[in-house]
Write a protein that binds this DNA or RNA. Sequence first.
DNA 1: AACCCTACCTAACAAATGTTAGGTAGGAAG
DNA 2: CTTCCTACCTAACATTTGTTAGGTAGGGTT
Lengths: 236, 236
Amino acid sequence: MTTMTSPPATASAAPAASSAASSGSSAASLPAAGTQPPEAVEARVRILDNAARLILDKGFAATSMRDIASAVGIKAGSLYHHFASKEEIFTAILERGIDVMVTAFESVENDDRAGAFDGATSAEALLRAHVRAHLGSLFEFGPYTAAHVTTFHNAPDSVHEIIVPRRDSYEAMWAALFDRLQAQGSLRVDHLSIARLVLFGGMNSTIEWFDPAGPLSLDDLADTIVSQFWHAGGHA
Amino acid sequence: MTTMTSPPATASAAPAASSAASSGSSAASLPAAGTQPPEAVEARVRILDNAARLILDKGFAATSMRDIASAVGIKAGSLYHHFASKEEIFTAILERGIDVMVTAFESVENDDRAGAFDGATSAEALLRAHVRAHLGSLFEFGPYTAAHVTTFHNAPDSVHEIIVPRRDSYEAMWAALFDRLQAQGSLRVDHLSIARLVLFGGMNSTIEWFDPAGPLSLDDLADTIVSQFWHAGGHA
DNA sequence: AACCCTACCTAACAAATGTTAGGTAGGAAG
DNA sequence: CTTCCTACCTAACATTTGTTAGGTAGGGTT
């Protein structure tokens, strides 16, 4: 199928989120026991969901722990039962944003290798699938990816250090895709990385003006962007 | 000094900056009297220059009045002799950012009307000139325009209300340009406004990855972006 | 029963925030 | 010399900030 469509924001790539940091134990216990305890992870997710939304439209620095807590329905001090610091919350959100994008990219690549795209005939279709996947990440995973795109630039250095490597590796995937397309001759541009970065900037800007509930669907948007990129519209 | 290279920061659109707010009198006195008093306006500019740079890389909320003051070399309280509030400083910066872009756009339009662009033969050249002008605003006016692009999204509502109209009018200029190109047949795209917004997003993203001191000049970058937009690179 | 653990709360902390009131040095104007 | 204005300073203010320490209710286990 296409990339992730309507998955509930809560489910998704949750478990592997926290990476380093965090105090100690937490999850990783009794796997599959009928009904999982709703708390434990759910509380973390509730916090991140609300924090991501707040950070998306006010920015990191302008969002206080008390803002986040009251959005969740608890008191500020209680947040520290789930996260060690404000920065850890922020980092977790940005990490999750990237993870969503990486997962979306990889699922297209898997489709590709599984033969869903006929190499020679539809390099354009492959690019469209990737563009659609990236747009899907942006719009279907609520605040996580969008917050990543809009707030990364101003993130404190300590957050940057953790996020930049993941960001780079996502970018490397796109770079490899473009290399492949150019090498096989289906794409021919003068400056490959500039073409890629401009396309990227164009895609990321959509969160500031595109409304997926409007007349155009995300599929339409992906189509439009890719055919513009692929065929262009100049006639003089 | 360091920032903005060619055009002297002080000159430009300075006088009409403050709009509403501000206490009372200020400049507007003796016009052209040999050597202008270096203070009066210069202090405002020094403050805005430094504030813009700080806001560009830390964001509005994360930049304190004390940060700005110490960058300028004065104490926080003294800032209130020049600006009524932190938000007024922010608003002035964003306004100036837009003004620079509008001015750049208009100067291209004047060249166009003066016959520098041969309507029928070089619609592409006209677009290139506009793209070059926008990129110039982004890179040659230091933090003002760049800060506008990266921090507008998270600005407080009170700031939004003042800036949005100006922003819209700049966007309307581009929309009119695209309409014209499409109407005269030199541009043929399915969704005109999407093409425009994606191009815009692509251009604005350059401040995050393009280095004008690198191998490619701003002219080169404008060329690359426009030919990608105009001729594209798909071949399969 | 006793125990423990999770998830929360209250209350407070020091630090940093935007902002204001009042003072002062110095030059210009009378 | 006095007066006034500009540009700054000092010192404080009330609030908000991230964060911590210690307490408590409740369910699960033994």
